[in-house]
Write a protein that binds this DNA or RNA. Structure first.
Lengths: 315, 315
DNA sequence: TCTAAAGTTTCCTTTTTCTGCAACTATAGA
DNA sequence: TCTATAGTTGCAGAAAAAGGAAACTTTAGA
C-alpha cells in the first residue's frame, strides 16, 4: 500500500469514501454492505482501498477469514464519526438560516395612510411577526419621495406609497386605494356655501390651495380644478392643519376627514366632482433582489391585502 | 433561484464549492479570485451559482456594481469556516495516527521461535511498518531470562518469550503455542529402540538430559519423566546440537525438529507421552507504561496472532 | 452617450469518477 | 481435497463534473 501524502485536506471524494467505510464497518464486511450501499463488492473494495491509500493507513483486515478493523481503522472510524457530526452541524446551521429570518426590516410609510380602513399593514405586520419573530422592525414615516429614494438606495427595505410615476428601479405591488375629496375648514369662505353651487360657481380659482410638495395625483387634481397651490406640505397631517385654519382648500383622504366631519370642523367641496383616488403600493427595489425577510414581508403584505385588492380591482 | 432540498447532508462536491466560495469572498469578487483559484470566471460563476442552488440561499450580490455578501452569505461563510476547521481537525487526527510514531522499537526474541508457523511476528512487523514507517527496528535474540530482564529494566521495549512463572512487573500477551517433544539423536542408545517400549521400559532416568538453563516448563517436564539434567543451554539451537550429538535427550519444538526428522538425524521418544506445550507471549513492562510505538506494535502483534489465539485458545 | 469591467449563459471538450463484469486469489470449513 | 465465501484486480463503458471560449447583460464612470 503506497503511502501518498494527504496533500491538501481531504477534499470532495474523501468524504464519500469515509461514508462508505463507515457503512462497511457498520455492516461488518463488504458483502454485507452491498445492499446497504447499493454498489457492487468490487466497487466497495476499490473505494476502501482508495481510502486506505488516501489516508495512508490500513483500516481493516478483510477476506474469507472475516472482517475486522485494525487499530488505526478504529481510530479513523472514530475521527470520521466526529467529522460527520461536524458536517451535520453545518447542515443544521444552514437549515437554521433557512428557517430563521433575523436582522432588521426597515419599513417606510406615508403618514396617515395606516388609518385607512383598507390598509391592512398592521395585519401584515402581525402575520410577519409570527412567521419571523426574530426580525426587528424599523418603521419610519416620510414623504413618498423620500421613501422612494431610500428604497432605491437600499437604506430602506420596503415602503408603502401612493403611486404616481413609477420608477424603473422599483418594483410596485398595489395594495389598496385611497379616495381623496376637496375640503375647506370652518371659517372658510366656502364653508357655508349652498350645496347646490356648481364647480364653476365656486370660483375655485380664487381660492388658496394647499397641496403636497411632491409629485402626486394631488397636484394633477388641483390643476384640473383650476386652483393654484399657495401652500405646500410634506405630510397629510400638515395639510389637515392648513385646511382647518379656514384659509386653505385641500384634499383629504376620506378616512382622515371622517373625524373632522364628525366634529363639523371641515366641509367637503362638491364631493361628487372633486374627488380622486390614489393607489397605494408597496415598493421594493428591483436590484439587488430584496433579501429574504423583505420578500417574506411582501408576501405578508400581499396576503393581508388580497381581499382588498380583489374587491377594488386595483390597477 | 430554484430551491432544492439538501437531501442528505452535503456530499462530496459541496465541500469544494464551499472552498471556492470562501476564496471568492476573501478575494472580494470573482475576477479577483481567478488567479487565486486558477480557474476562469465563467467556471467560478457556475460554481457559486451551484452552491447557492445547493444550499438554497442567495449568498452574495455581485455584478458590475461590486461584490457583497448577503446576510445569509455571511452566516454561511461563518459556518463554512467552522466546517473547514473540523476537516482540518480530522486531518490532524489522521496525521497523529501515523506521524507520531518515530524512534527505535527494540524487540527481543527467543531463538528459533520465529520459524514456528504459528508465530506471525513477521506479519506484525510488516503491518507495523505500514503503520509506523518511521520507527526503526532493533531486533535481538536472547534467552528468555535475559529478555525479561531487559524488558523489565526498560532497555528493551517488547519481547516474545515462552511463559513460565509470570513477573508482576510485566504484562503478558499470549500469542501462540509451541509444542515440544523429547528427542534423541542418531547414535543414541534409544535411537533404534522399538517403538512399542513404554516410558518405564525406556529407563529414562539413566539417560543424560540436556535442558534450558533458565526456568521453564522444560525443567518441569524433564523432572516428571525422572530424567536429570546433565547439560544446560541458553539457546534452542545449542540444544539441538547436543541432541544431535547422540549423547543427550532433549526437548525440541516440533517445527524445529521437523528439519532433522526429515533428514533422519533425530528420533522422537514416546511422542504421545513426553510432549508438552509452551505458550509464547509478548511481554512489556507495566510501569512506566510502554510508549505509543510499543503499544502500536503490541496491537500489531495481537492482530497478527488473533486468528492463532482464537484457534488454539491460548490460555 | 460610450466604454470598460464584472458576471452570466450557452455550448462544447476534456477529465475524472463511478460502476459492474469477469477472472483471480486466499481462506474457512466440510 | 474440494467447495463456498470474501475480497481483489484489470478492463471498459457510462456518467458526471470541471473547465473554457465566446457572446451577452448590466452597471459604474468618463
Amino acid at each position: 500500500m503506497a503511502k501518498r501524502a494527504l496533500i491538501q485536506s481531504l477534499s470532495n471524494v474523501d468524504i464519500r469514501l469515509l461514508r462508505i467505510f463507515m457503512t462497511v464497518t457498520e455492516c461488518g464486511g463488504f458483502a454485507a454492505s452491498e445492499l446497504e450501499l447499493d454498489i457492487g463488492r468490487s466497487t466497495i473494495s476499490k473505494h476502501v482501498s482508495d481510502l486506505e491509500l488516501r489516508i495512508g493507513l490500513k483500516l481493516c483486515n478483510r477476506g474469507p477469514s472475516g472482517f475486522a478493523l485494525t487499530a488505526e481503522g478504529e481510530k479513523v472510524l472514530e475521527a470520521a464519526h466526529k467529522l460527520m457530526s461536524s458536517i451535520d452541524g453545518f447542515q443544521s446551521e444552514i437549515d437554521d438560516i433557512h428557517s430563521k429570518l433575523t436582522g432588521t426590516l426597515r419599513i417606510g410609510l406615508f403618514d396617515q395612510s395606516s388609518t385607512n380602513p383598507d390598509a391592512r399593514i398592521h395585519d401584515a405586520i402581525r402575520h410577519f411577526d409570527m412567521v419571523a419573530p426574530d426580525v426587528a422592525l424599523d418603521i419610519a414615516l416620510a414623504p413618498p419621495s423620500t421613501l422612494e429614494a431610500r428604497v432605491t438606495d437600499g437604506t430602506m427595505d420596503v415602503a408603502v406609497v401612493p403611486i404616481h410615476r413609477q420608477s424603473s428601479l422599483l418594483s410596485y405591488t398595489p395594495l389598496y386605494l385611497e379616495h381623496m375629496t376637496l375640503y375647506c375648514g370652518e371659517g372658510h369662505a366656502l364653508f357655508d356655501a349652498p350645496e347646490e353651487l356648481s364647480i364653476a360657481d365656486l370660483k375655485l380659482g380664487t381660492q388658496k390651495y394647499a397641496g403636497y410638495a411632491f409629485n402626486s395625483p394631488n397636484m394633477k387634481a388641483g390643476r384640473q380644478l383650476g386652483i393654484k397651490r399657495a401652500a405646500q406640505v410634506q405630510e397629510e397631517e400638515a395639510l389637515s392643519l392648513l385646511i382647518q385654519s379656514g384659509r386653505y382648500l385641500g384634499f383629504l383622504a376620506d378616512h382622515v376627514a371622517e373625524t373632522f366631519l364628525r366634529k363639523g370642523t371641515v366641509r367637503p367641496i362638491a364631493p361628487n366632482h372633486t374627488g380622486y383616488s390614489t393607489t397605494f403600493a408597496a415598493i421594493t427595489r428591483k436590484k439587488p433582489e430584496p433579501d429574504r425577510k423583505t420578500l417574506e414581508f411582501m408576501s405578508c403584505l400581499r396576503a393581508a391585502h388580497d381581499e382588498v385588492i380583489n374587491r377594488l380591482d386595483v390597477s
